[in-house]
């Protein structure tokens, strides 16, 4: 299958700290790729480079849409990574619009379709510019996702009042509402109980398969090895900013480098977390 994202020699340096060192890997279209590694391995930094929150020191991040359009993510500023290249993300510490309802969160995510430019946004004040049908479509889409994450009944509740697991799912739904080709999830299973993790895994598999939404490749950072091993098609293992292993879940699990990184070298807390999961 074709690569949707190809990371080539990605390097990120913060002052004297080399957070990511010449990292290369590929995310294949229609697959779930997991990035794992002990705390401080540079996983979130990689994510922040891909989603435009950091500008990499060097390296190339090439995204290719199914239609053949190519994007060099390292050159695209801020919001256009989501808007044009259609890369969506969630955050390690949930970043929902807490004071807005679940429905509103999903509506905000469709902002660019609802309001292609400022003029159309202002015309809508006077009921011009054909806003109504677009809004109707956006609400329908939001309902589709609320249904998919089982929050239809709580559509009008503020996001901040939802239970933790529901907030995680809502954040994923919100990211999906921008119609991404690549969804980046930063520890989506963190803090979930086993049943919720199970539901999350199912949701991600359905997103990948296109049973809900238009189908989308997924890149995720996760510590919960149960989730990683169950849903990933491909696993990349980082340690100290470098790739130490890359392959199918089964290959990675048996890689001596991975075992050493998780259990040795003083990263004991991390090892516990990983094995406990």
């Amino acid at each position: 299958m074709a690569d949707i994202l190809s990371v080539e020699s990605l390097t990120m340096r913060f002052g004297g700290l080399l957070a990511v060192d010449s990292l290369s890997f590929a995310v294949r279209a229609g697959e779930i790729t997991a990035v794992i590694g002990p705390n401080g391995a540079g996983k979130t930094t990689v994510f922040n480079c891909i989603t435009g929150f950091y500008r990499p020191t060097s390296g190339r991040l090439a995204l290719t849409h199914a239609g053949g359009d190519g994007f060099e993510l390292q050159t695209i500023p801020g919001h256009n990574i989501a808007r044009r290249a259609r890369v969506a993300r969630t955050f390690q510490n949930i970043r929902l619009f807490a004071g807005m309802t679940a429905l509103e969160n999903l509506m905000v995510a469709q902002h660019n379709r609802l309001m292609p430019n400022v003029a159309s946004g202002l015309l809508a004040v006077f009921g011009l510019g054909g806003y109504r049908p677009i809004q109707h479509a956006a609400i329908e889409k939001a309902k589709l996702w609320l249904d998919a994450i089982g929050l239809m009944a709580r559509a009008d509740d503020p996001a901040g009042a939802l239970p933790y697991g529901a907030q995680r799912r809502l954040e994923i739904a919100r990211a999906m509402c921008i119609d991404p080709v690549l969804l980046c999830l930063d520890e989506p299973a963190a803090g979930l109980n086993p049943r919720e993790s199970e539901e999350l895994s199912d949701l991600l598999l359905r997103i990948r398969g296109g049973q809900v939404g238009g189908g989308c490749s997924i890149l995720l950072i996760e510590h919960d090895m149960g989730v990683v091993m169950r849903i990933s098609d491909h696993v990349v293992v980082l340690d100290h900013g470098e790739k130490i292993s890359d392959g199918t879940p089964a290959e990675v699990r048996n890689d001596p480098h991975v075992i050493a990184a998780y259990l040795g070298e003083g990263d004991e807390d991390e090892g516990h977390e990983a094995s406990a999961a």
Partner: peptide, 29 residues
Amino acid sequence: LRLRRLPLGRAWEALREDEVACRSLGINV
């Protein structure tokens, strides 16, 4: 009141809630 119910007003409120999340959703901050 009208703007509040439209995408622009909603984007303002979203900006108030979380600017970083807005950026991640492709909103031109």
